Simulated scan of single mutants.
Amino acid sequence: MDKGYDRIAVVTGANSGIGKATAVALAEQGFDVGITFHTDRNSADEVAELVRESGREAAVRQHDLTDPERAARVVDELAEELGLGVLINNAGTGSAEPLLDMDYQRWRSVLAVDLDGAFLCAQRAARRMIDSGRGGRIINVTSVHEELPRVGAGPYCAAKGGLRMLSRVLALELAEYGITVNTVAPGEIATAMTGQEDRLPQIGSRPGYPIARAGDAREVAAALAFLAGPAASYITGTTLFVDGGLGLMGPQAGGALGTGDWRHG
């Protein structure tokens, strides 16, 4: 059973999209929230204000995961200010170029943000949760590409697949301390990362998906908030896909394609 972990969450990349929706959802469920951002301080402050409007405390820190060791210290800073019971590693980046055209620095930059940064933040959070003796939650936001490949997204897919396995090892190692570790794998979500910021998903706009639209950030946030809450105390080492059934279409779509255009993204 739960050890009564602190209802205080750090959400990385919480100034927009899934991170913003998650910070608000957690605040509505009674969590204080530490918010990190990369470059846009104003949007992070706006999210902090939304958290405070729910009657909860908020703190904001800049967080540049291209330098993951330095960025991970922000987890400690927020924990010192607010406390820490939940870490949601949401911040990430992507790529859109074939592997044969990619230089090593570009490869490493994506891995640093999407995998190295998540590892170091989780490590610092877990140490604090163990020291508290009250357990906690670590939730890593991956993607359907933790399992399914995409042309032009080699380092992103490698990082997200690695993050899934990292999460599973952490789940084994941290269970005795009352800490659960899971991943949430979104499909296409209407956020800035997919060029759809502030745009509601249009029903019927994705005829190749079982649910024929992109997802809404709040739908992913609901899954994250569930795993962060007490009802998820017996769930660890697993992935919750929030993809409208997109992952089911791999074999089906492959058989339906009439050209090889997919080879070029």
Rank of each mutant, 00 (worst) to 15 (best):
A79D: 13
E197K: 11
G195R: 08
E147Q: 14
R41Y: 11
S143K: 00
G244E: 06
Y234C: 00
R56L: 06
T66Q: 12
R206I: 02
A231S: 09
A58S: 15
R134A: 09
G19R: 03
T239L: 01
D198H: 00
L246S: 06
A175R: 10
T39D: 15
T93C: 10
L257H: 00
A91D: 06
R106C: 00
E146R: 02
L170V: 03
G245Q: 07
H63Q: 10
I189V: 13
A223L: 04
V184E: 01
G4H: 14
L174H: 02
V60K: 07
G136D: 07
G85V: 08
P251T: 03
M249N: 00
Q252I: 13
M249D: 00
H264K: 06
V169A: 12
G208R: 10
V10F: 14
R128T: 03
Q123R: 15
A228M: 05
R199Q: 15
L227T: 06
L87T: 04
W262D: 10
G215Q: 00
G92E: 02
V242N: 00
I8S: 07
R108H: 09
V220L: 08
Y5W: 15
K20G: 03
D67I: 09
D6L: 12
R137Q: 11
V24P: 03
A44Q: 08
E53F: 10
D116H: 02
L174S: 01
D32L: 14
E81N: 11
M1S: 15
D243Q: 05
L174A: 04
G245K: 05
E46T: 10
R168P: 02
G133Y: 09
Q202F: 01
L99Q: 05
A192Y: 00
G247A: 12
E69R: 12
G178K: 01
A221P: 02
A253L: 13
E188Q: 08
G178P: 01
R213F: 10
E80D: 15
S167Y: 02
R263H: 00
A122W: 01
R124H: 06
L148R: 08
N90H: 10
P210Q: 08
D101V: 05
R41N: 12
Q196E: 10
G133F: 09
A23T: 03
L227W: 05
Q62C: 11
A25E: 15
V144L: 12
A96L: 12
D101E: 15
V10Y: 08
A72N: 06
G13S: 12
Y209H: 13
D64N: 15
T39W: 10
P251S: 06
N90E: 03
G133P: 07
T236Q: 04
A222P: 07
K3Q: 15
